[in-house]
Design a protein around this nucleic acid. Structure first.
Lengths: 239, 239
DNA sequence: TTAATGATGCCAAAACCTGGCACCATTAAG
DNA sequence: CTTAATGGTGCCAGGTTTTGGCATCATTAA
């Protein structure tokens, strides 16, 4: 985790919990006490007002007034975005939710502090139930950037994709396929691809793909993927 | 000098001078040519449009239109937001997805059109499975505005809320309750409230609430809502 | 043709970040 | 008073990231 991301996470957590301790923050963002204290100093340098009190019963508290800048989105719009992203996260840690959070943090900073405060308080009243059975995707988070970097050109330029794949039995094989679609069955993402060697479609769990790499100079045609009827396009209707 | 600070300095200098060269920038901010070029790439990733032309008489120029984008979102961040919102919509039409789309549309406008086109093409390759059994929430969409308008002050100022409620058996009753939380069990939203008349918690399906209205002048205290263990706060956990 | 310029890959050195440790000051509880 | 919890600082070894230099290429105007 990046310094900047961690500091954003700290601000979010402070905003959410109202008051907490250094040890708690360290646990929450997965860093040491020392690092948290350093981050707090950095944040104070950047203008965030963070009250702190040593001693038993003391703690940290973020002054809500200490966020400023200009706006372009309406409060309702930001609220809606917030809900979407947060729900997705709650749904089981889909990939990219960290990125989305990061983007939202920037957007939130563009709200008038007063409205932002209201938004936060309102949001604190929201809870979500579990959407899907929990699956271990602990490694997925760190692969996002690599996967995205490799997949984007593969889909855009229709280049073949090579990677090594670890199937359900733990057997690792090397693959060279034509990416056709990505299928999301929360919280697991699949790559659906045509395997020229096997002359058939195959689907691969994202979290079992490693070392993905585009094969430059290759090209292929899109195929009609035989999805079941309960699978539908993700593309929003209107936007 | 920090990476971020240096990149800000580059943008300021480009804005100020109108046009310049890499060597000039390197001199100005006290870094090497190589580093400047790296920074320019980062800035482009974040959406800044920087024209550059090689060759004698060429140079760099910052597109003034891209400066209006005060919120510096990276392409990856917008992509992540897009995924979240689109998935939510596909997952069963949660309330507010229209608003979220609208907000995203504004954000997308801040992207270079070329990148936006790529983003859309990439998104065409995504599909999503069904998250939860389908429920009829056809009316929910039109109530969003009313509900939001009524609920926001109720939660913010802790005012009692009156509405008429149609229970599962179709019996309509008049309610006057203290709103404590909102619970999302996709795709259905619930209002969790303390009912003073019954001295107990009650939950109400959003799509069965009608004519909600805040009762001015009332006030109450927040209570600890006895949620089951698989219910968790919607507020994003730290990244 | 030539010199200026943007652009990219590579690599070793420099800079920075991190986590652990020792230690201190303050505070509330017992 | 003693004790445990807490915020805060200095220091250092190890790890990660950033940086600058270099070679190289493409493009453009003089």
């Amino acid at each position: 985790m990046n310094t900047r991301l961690r500091q954003d996470a700290i601000v979010r957590y402070l905003r959410r919990t109202g008051a907490t301790t250094v040890a708690d923050l360290a646990q929450e963002v997965g860093a040491s006490r020392r690092t948290i204290l350093r981050d707090l100093n950095s944040l104070r340098d950047e203008g965030f007002v963070i009250h702190s009190e040593p001693g038993r019963g003391g703690g940290l508290q973020l002054d809500p007034q200490s966020v400023q800048t200009t706006t372009r989105l309406s409060v309702a719009e930001v609220f809606a975005l917030l809900i979407s992203v947060a729900s997705m996260r709650a749904a089981g840690g889909l990939p990219f939710s960290d990125l989305a959070d990061q983007g939202l943090a920037k957007i939130e900073k563009a709200l008038p502090p007063e409205k932002l405060r209201d938004l936060r308080r309102f949001l604190d009243c929201l809870y979500v139930g579990q959407l899907a059975p929990q699956v271990d995707i602990s490694d997925l988070g760190e692969m996002d950037a690599d996967l995205l970097a490799a997949f984007e050109p593969a889909f855009l330029k229709q280049l073949r994709l090579q990677f090594s794949y670890c199937d359900a039995k733990g057997v690792v094989t090397q693959r060279d396929v034509e990416p056709q679609a990505m299928l999301i069955l929360p919280p697991v993402w699949y790559l659906v691809a045509w395997d020229p060697a096997r002359q058939d479609f195959r689907h691969f769990r994202m979290d079992r793909i490693s070392a993905p790499e585009c094969v430059e100079g290759t090209s292929f045609r899109r195929r009609h993927v035989p999805f079941k009827s309960d699978v539908r396009p993700l593309q929003p209707a209107s936007a």
